[in-house]
Design a protein around this nucleic acid. Sequence first.
DNA 1: TTGAAAGCGATACCAC
DNA 2: GTGGTATCGCTTTCAA
Lengths: 336, 336
Amino acid sequence: MKATIYDIAREAGVSIATVSQVINGKGKISEKRRAEIMEIMERLHYQPSAIAAALTGKQTYTLGLLVPDISNPYFAELARAVEDRSRKLGYSVVICSTDNKDERVERYLNLLQQKRVDGMMIGTGIDNADILAPLLQQSIPVALIARQMPTLSVHTVAIDDRLGGALAAQHLLELGHTHLAVLSEPFKVSSSQERIRGFREQLQQAGHTLAPERIRASSADLHAAKQEVLQLLSDIERPTGLFCCNDIQAIGALQAAKELGLRVPEDVSIIGFDNTILASVTSPPLTTIAQPIEELGRHAVDILIEELKDHNKQPQQKVLKPELVIRESTGPRVER
Amino acid sequence: MKATIYDIAREAGVSIATVSQVINGKGKISEKRRAEIMEIMERLHYQPSAIAAALTGKQTYTLGLLVPDISNPYFAELARAVEDRSRKLGYSVVICSTDNKDERVERYLNLLQQKRVDGMMIGTGIDNADILAPLLQQSIPVALIARQMPTLSVHTVAIDDRLGGALAAQHLLELGHTHLAVLSEPFKVSSSQERIRGFREQLQQAGHTLAPERIRASSADLHAAKQEVLQLLSDIERPTGLFCCNDIQAIGALQAAKELGLRVPEDVSIIGFDNTILASVTSPPLTTIAQPIEELGRHAVDILIEELKDHNKQPQQKVLKPELVIRESTGPRVER
DNA sequence: TTGAAAGCGATACCAC
DNA sequence: GTGGTATCGCTTTCAA
């Protein structure tokens, strides 16, 4: 049914070795034969088996990408960037949603290993760094995206979260806000911690402080975020500026403000993080700290493939800079 | 370096056949041997090569999913549904963004064939149905998701777009709107055509008509949609109800209305389609026709895998029902 | 219960 | 230039 290299060889009256040569453009084959064989491959709709090729030691030209949830716009955009770059370089990508569960991560890691992917990109949280050990031991290239695993020496592409937090603080300060609050992701998320650190440092530099009770945590869930913010904004000492560690949370904040009859930005300025498509569709559109998502994905792929090419020595660490994107959810402080 | 079945066999002092048996839980192996071998596999971090297995005729347990753009929330949510179901059944999925370009579709189709995916799900537009022919010829299971290819007999999972359009019209009519307009995707998109047909039919049943100039088309791009709607709403005979063929366009409409100083829903009621996460984050939140995205993905996977199991005869056609989700972007008509 | 051996579809080295 | 053949890691009869 399916044509194999043998079928082509027989049809052309040559050996499979010769056919293999023309498939891979290697060796010396007379122009005539080459054309002949190509024609036959075409005619028989021949597709060389990547699987058989991989078995002989060739790469699979497949990369794995682990994210918590591909339906989350941030990871969807990241996936797109990764896929685009991969395709351009001749690779395809298997995307896996882990829901941040170590058990799932581990299962996927094994699965991808069995399928002999050439490398893996990890954009999902991992509680126990040990589960990556087997990979490294087998020297399968791994790149972490926007995640830190200080105990491991692996390739890393990340953004400067601390700077991001600082930018947010700076923006709010410049608008005259000094009563500030923060909505964080769960505390174990290191990137959130860094963002908050940067935010707080910037405040301190300006002579302000951030009381611990002004920092609340919630899951990335819209509704949960809204509930937290509802409380934050009901405080008598209502903050006039709120920094959220991702766009979804910022949207929850927007909704909370609305529910309380507060105007954004006149009553509260709200600033998000990520700059996913969500930030541009809210009303008012969200001021946010933009992650260079496309670059993040592109570099991860490049690093991986580079390692595949010349069995890299040193783990690379790339840190990209976030940027402030001003839309309409932040404005100058208004005296009350 | 990497342990193979031979390493395990040698270590256990048995033949590779025996090891293979225990890997696959087949044949009759003494409990003692089985336990012994398992222990050794564990100890050596042995991962059987799925590639070698596939070469012997086993499935690859990999499915392909083609969508126009994985960063679009609708497709991201679909991908998540597909992935979830696939994982549950032991498959992983390769996701490919085609940007609706036939050339890309074709390249991916070939690529996935070479990698011997067990089946493909196609959620991307295809202009020339012929490029699917080779697949069907090779009897590779294919399922179209929310796409129609009338000329081909393939599995199809879709929603009743016409009903969706009708639901939208009905809702608007019930609110008292009779001055209506429609924002469509480009006219070659068949699902949009069906939605509009259903919309129009419902109007006609109620004794109203929809003038051709009240139907505008734009790409799925937020900004393009906004521009179209800006024109629609600037008409002296401004419509009080607007049906958009997807949520992104509806958001463009929301923004256009805002820019014109029109209130939603008091001045214009706007209704979208898809019910992606976007619909819930806008302000006001979007009334929209919900696609059962999760079911769509799940059925596509199920159909494919069912065919893999018992080499199905008849192409299946599954049509799911959309539902009206009322939020706050639609309201009763207000006399002016 | 276990093992020997024939593929699966390609690659690559070595002859000719 | 071209062909013969061992090999990759596993599955699967068929014998023993």
